[in-house]
């Protein structure tokens, strides 16, 4: 078997109740995406807020069934897997840790939960692994006795990471794992994730809005726009020679720590796309700074590139 994650022609839509004027609408969150991640690989996923990244993560985790298509992790259809076996294989780290941590449970118990749910690990072993994990993410034993509400945002995020890694899964789906952390703690967590990957051969799907972080952790990067991967390339290529106009706009919007430069306007306009009403032709055309008339009619085919591809009529 040579893929850790394999996604084939996956589509996921949500039905949204129509407003005053009746008809229900369909939000297309993931629109016919296919890709594979090899064992030990790190696929970084970046893109527009609301473009479907978290939905993709939930699909891969088997938390959400696809509307169409197939998803396999280590060769097994994720939807058919036994929950406990799946938990040992693949684990999530979600954004918004507050929403994903039980507010009434102590930190230690939260981190112990996945171990207990396995049903066959001795109590002493559980305690040992929890201690080890808390230490690895930089939480003291005293913090282990607190409730999530008694922690700062970044401390809660570390709890979520400890909970995900305590079962030593082989695949970790990280959805904005470090967006609540300061740069120093973020570096510690990313170094930890990198170390675990090296030592244990873990595979990551790594969603982040922080392009510098993605550049550091990912071996390849997919740029998502309105439910599709519009560009995919090895990390270096993507950052050195981006091809898709949306990728270029993303890179140009990064705020480097240089005072006095202000906030750039990369000319995408202020009207964002509506996932319930995907534009015809190239889905990026209403905002694309170099769009031509045919962009609103012709759907750009995938143009293959070494280890990736790009969907734009003009490249």
């Amino acid at each position: 078997m040579n893929t850790a994650i394999e996604v084939k022609a996956v589509r996921r839509t949500f039905r949204v109740k129509g407003g005053l004027f009746g008809a229900d609408r369909h939000v297309v969150a993931v629109d016919d995406i296919s890709f594979a991640v090899p064992p030990g690989g790190v696929l970084g996923v970046v893109g527009e807020s609301g473009c479907g990244k978290s939905t993709l993560a939930r699909l891969i985790l088997g938390l959400l069934p696809p509307t169409a298509g197939d998803i396999a992790v280590e060769g097994q259809r994720v939807i058919d897997m036994d929950r406990r076996a799946r938990a040992r294989l693949i684990q999530p780290v979600f954004q918004d840790p507050f929403a994903s941590l039980n507010p009434l449970a102590r930190v230690r118990d939260i981190v112990a939960m996945p171990l207990k749910a396995q049903g066959n690990i001795a109590g002493s072993e559980i305690a040992k692994r929890v201690d080890e994990m808390l230490a690895r993410v930089g939480l003291s034993a005293e913090m282990g006795r607190r409730l999530p509400t008694e922690l700062s945002g970044g401390q809660r995020q570390r709890v979520a990471i400890a909970r995900a890694l305590v079962l030593r899964p082989r695949i970790v789906v990280c959805d904005e794992p470090t967006s609540a952390l300061d740069v120093s703690v973020q570096a510690q967590i990313l170094n930890l994730l990198a170390e675990l990957r090296r030592d244990l051969g873990l595979t990551y799907l790594f969603i982040s809005h922080n392009l510098a972080v993605v550049e550091h952790v990912a071996s390849e990067v997919a740029v998502m726009y309105l439910g599709r991967f519009v560009e995919r390339a090895p990390t270096e290529t993507l950052f050195r020679r981006p091809e898709h106009p949306y990728t270029k706009a993303l890179l140009a919007s990064v705020l480097t720590p240089e005072p006095g430069l202000g906030v750039p306007d990369v000319g995408l306009g202020d009207t964002l796309p509506d996932p319930a009403n995907i534009p015809p032709g190239c889905r990026f055309h209403p905002r694309c700074p170099i769009a031509e008339p045919r962009c609103s009619i012709e759907t750009p085919p995938l143009k293959p590139r070494p280890a990736g591809g790009v969907e734009c009529l003009l490249v």
Partner: peptide, 19 residues
């Protein structure tokens, strides 16, 4: 931390709005 969940282009848009 008002923009942690936003991609960089939307973040720029929000920061311009606030400015």
């Amino acid at each position: 931390e008002p923009t942690t969940a936003l991609d960089v282009t939307v973040q720029a848009q929000i920061l311009r709005l606030l400015a």
